[in-house]
Amino acid sequence: MDLLAKVEELSGENLYACYQCGKCSAGCPMVDQMDLLPNQVILYVIRNDESVVEAKTPWICAQCYQCGTRCPRNVDITKIMEALRLIKLRKNIDYLKIGKVKKNLPQIAVVSATRKYTG
């Protein structure tokens, strides 16, 4: 299955609905830490450019739902970010060694990290 089909299947989103207005990236609170803007991520996936799977963007995404809430085309980019993370995690490639994280973080942070960064 190619990348686009996989992302569509995991996210349930229609990436072609995007008309690249950039509202998603404009509202994203983590955008200054990203190597690809959220709207660029959509372009990469549509072009089946596998390098997007190696990008930092999906991992720095905080699942805040701002992008999807504001998208005039109803594309839920939050779900697309999750799909990209899962493509790696489901191959048993963890983003983070959970045993190596800083001690004494609140439970809520550690649990979230296991969900988003380990498969």
């Binding site: 959970i98 045993g99 994280v101 001690k103 004494n104 439970q107 550690v110 990290a113 296991t114």
Partner: peptide, 13 residues
């Protein structure tokens, strides 16, 4: 309240 999760963070999974 952090001792167990510090030593065994995988319980958060």
């Amino acid at each position: 309240d952090k001792t167990l999760v510090n030593f065994y963070p995988e319980i958060a999974r």
